[in-house]
Design a protein around this nucleic acid. Structure first.
Lengths: 252, 252
DNA sequence: CGCATGCTTGACTTTGATCAATAGCGGTGG
DNA sequence: CCACCGCTATTGATCAAAGTCAAGCATGCG
């Protein structure tokens, strides 16, 4: 028994896609769960959560126009969300990393407006929305938590709006790098060295730039000794300067 | 008595800023309330709603960083929401017309991230959020309604992201005109003739364009006989063409 | 009336898009 | 093993859409 538990523990620690996890022992629960939830309430929430087999790179988690029934917390890996615009081209609306939640766009009309695609092998926790709603009626903090989650999505989308509306190509790239950096450090990973899970094309699409511009900015930032890029590996060598660039003080 | 009631009724019909309104008799309740709410539940919701004196043009409904305690349904007039970006300039994040709800950005961190300012004389219904939450625990449809409201805000913000990321200046203006048009017709107003409540500066700020570009696009659309503009009065003369322009088929 | 404000229009500049060529890399099969 | 392909990324040359700068006009208000 003790031996078995040790094995499980070891696998938990080593494999980020391990299915045998509950919210109670999940390393990400400070990110995706409200801090003020009681242990027994966490167990009740855990009881409704479904964990399937991991998505492979390129797999859809769901597609735009699918019937909505769940939101999903990313457990490992990374995904992108994208909408089809009226004239038919894709718009990447967000990248989601472990601990973050996708799918809330589907609540309004009971259909997802985004498609979500794995950028690399990724596992997710499925939260059936109807059951979460029922549970929320009994656990006020859970209700509050979901209101907050959705509100945060709103404020983040509005930050993207500001970025697209007001910032130069260089500022947009800098802001994206800083966003990924801070989200990594929230998960106890390095804020300075990381691997971008998405392609240049995805970055360009997300930031409203062409792939050529993205590439040029990366090399320019590298020449300015702000970052060092090797394919998808990024090393931020001058965090302070990167912040200045993101805030538009790059050239003044 | 009968006479008095008639007077009240007359004022209701004539003055959109009249305070003596309840959700039950509000002409906008199909827009801002869930259809599936029972009459007695509407009364309970109405019981927590506060209606103050109207805002005058330029008045703040609340300011970014204010402590969050309420969301607001616009009853009459129009308001704009704006954030301050990191480098200090304003970004208009939305225009809100009667029946629409502002303030949900404040839930995440108990502080508003936007400021909201009246574009013209406007009256609002204040919905204290804590009391709405309590009521939601007893009225599942109300909980669902707020999830949907917030989800709709998310999908709308994502549409703006797509607009800013992918569309030309002309497409952005066309899309804004169509948005206002359809929101007007939802309130039984003309889809073709209306008054823009916001300035050219606000439009440019919202759409990521300079005021000069906004002005030029308006005159260009007018020369193409798509719209007719006189100051803030807009007449859409070719709805079909305007839709084509918004979808990027304007020149192909 | 004179001044401030908001809008329009014109001339010129700049940023990022477009077009095009090339390089690197992983997989596949002869 | 290496020749070939497909895909992604980089780099350069040119172009165009929207920004900037500047001037002028209309409106409204003390």
């Amino acid at each position: 028994m003790t031996v078995n538990q040790n094995i499980v523990k070891t696998q938990d620690a080593n494999c980020p896609h391990d299915k045998r996890v509950s919210c109670g022992n999940c390393r990400l629960n400070t990110i995706c769960l409200p801090i003020s939830l009681h242990i027994e309430d966490i167990d009740r929430l855990n009881g409704i959560i479904q964990r399937g087999k991991p998505l492979q790179k390129g797999d859809y988690l769901y597609r735009a126009n699918d019937h909505f029934h769940s939101v999903y917390a990313i457990r490992s890996g990374a995904v992108k969300a994208l909408t089809l615009s009226d004239n038919g081209e894709e718009q990447v609306t967000g990248f989601y990393l472990p601990g973050e939640v996708v799918g809330m766009d589907g609540i309004a009309d009971n259909r997802y407006t985004n498609s979500v695609i794995a950028l690399e092998t990724a596992s997710v926790c499925e939260i059936p929305f109807n059951r979460m709603e029922e549970l929320s009626l009994q656990i006020p903090n859970l209700q509050r938590h979901f209101f907050q989650l959705m509100s945060r999505e709103i404020t983040q989308d509005q930050q993207i709006i500001t970025l697209l509306s007001k910032s130069s190509a260089e500022e947009r790239i800098a802001a994206l790098l800083l966003s990924i950096s801070s989200r990594n450090s929230r998960r106890q990973l390095s804020a300075n060295a990381f691997r971008l899970p998405m392609s240049r094309t995805d970055i360009g699409n997300y930031l409203g730039l062409t792939i050529e511009t993205v590439s040029r900015i990366f090399t320019r930032l590298q020449k300015q000794n702000v970052i060092s890029v090797d394919k998808k590996e990024v090393l931020i060598t001058d965090m302070e300067l990167l912040r200045n660039i993101a805030n538009g003080d790059g050239h003044c």
